[in-house]
Design a protein around this nucleic acid. Structure first.
Lengths: 150, 150
DNA sequence: CTCCATGCAAAAGGTTTGCACTCCC
DNA sequence: GGGAGTGCAAACCTTTTGCATGGAG
């Protein structure tokens, strides 16, 4: 595998830069995986990441994609979202606090910033220590909402 | 399979009663599946449902559990929740509007009723038609929060 | 009696793992 | 050079499906 001129690839806040800073080795595989994740406007499944990444690096294997995604998640550099059906999707945006908007028809996921606030009253906390509140807005994207049948 | 004296089993709002009202046939399999779902205080995975149900009806098969859960969900009589890892869980409480509280350590899920409200400002809706807002509170349950190491 | 429902087993995803080889640091 | 990282293939886990049998209504 050709060694990479990493300096040109590491924009300060990029996934790749964060990866390096965490002490992970900078390999070609990780580079194409990070690129695939960041370049996509929507949140990809592991398989979609693989497809896009393997286009740039044909010897890439699926296992490496899964391993890398899991490592990144463990480090908190990406987050994983499970919808009710279909495979998990991965979100490289972890620096900005946000929630998700999901199309129930085609499965597309977008980042959104909601207004307002929810919380759990004491009597609803059941003794839990609450760390995070996750909100998923569900509905239909513009394309799927159109009842067009020409 | 022995026919069941269904009257004694159908408390008015029970899953079983709702099942019957929807025109589904009342079988022993569906009965034990509904019982398993309703008797558990927490929300079970398909496999947990199977385990508990098969204890009462040894000839029950996994496929039937999945089929039945899917039918119930399609009818809107139960709801399915996907956490970020582990299999999906099923919630028989669909009559009361509620959200979920999840333990990140052991995976337990409880129903809760939050206060406050979130919404998406126009400029965050991306043209979507929003149908539902799902909220998941994540944290540690009392048992898992305890740092006990005797 | 007629279908819906079931069991079984196989298949279909999606994801993880063991092992030997590779290559970054 | 050493150990993290990788590819491959097989294993795993969860869920779905095809088909023949069985039982509810």
């Amino acid at each position: 595998m050709k060694s990479t001129d990493s300096t040109s690839l590491e924009r300060p806040g990029s996934l790749l830069a964060r990866l390096r800073r965490r002490g992970l080795r900078l390999t070609a595989q990780r580079r194409v995986i990070a690129q695939a994740l960041e370049e996509a406007g929507v949140h990809l499944t592991a398989d979609e990441v693989f497809e896009r990444a393997v286009a740039r690096l044909p010897e890439l294997s699926r296992a490496t994609v899964y391993n890398t995604l899991n490592q990144l998640r463990a480090l908190g550099e990406i987050c994983e979202i499970s919808l009710d059906d279909g495979p998990r999707r991965y979100d490289p945006n972890v620096t900005e606090r946000h929630q998700h908007l999901v199309c129930d028809s085609c499965g597309t996921v977008r980042d959104v910033i909601p207004s307002g606030d929810v919380s759990l009253p004491e009597d609803q906390q059941h003794g839990f220590v609450i760390n995070e509140v996750q909100v998923i807005f569900r509905g239909l994207c513009p394309a799927c909402a159109k009842p067009s049948r020409p």
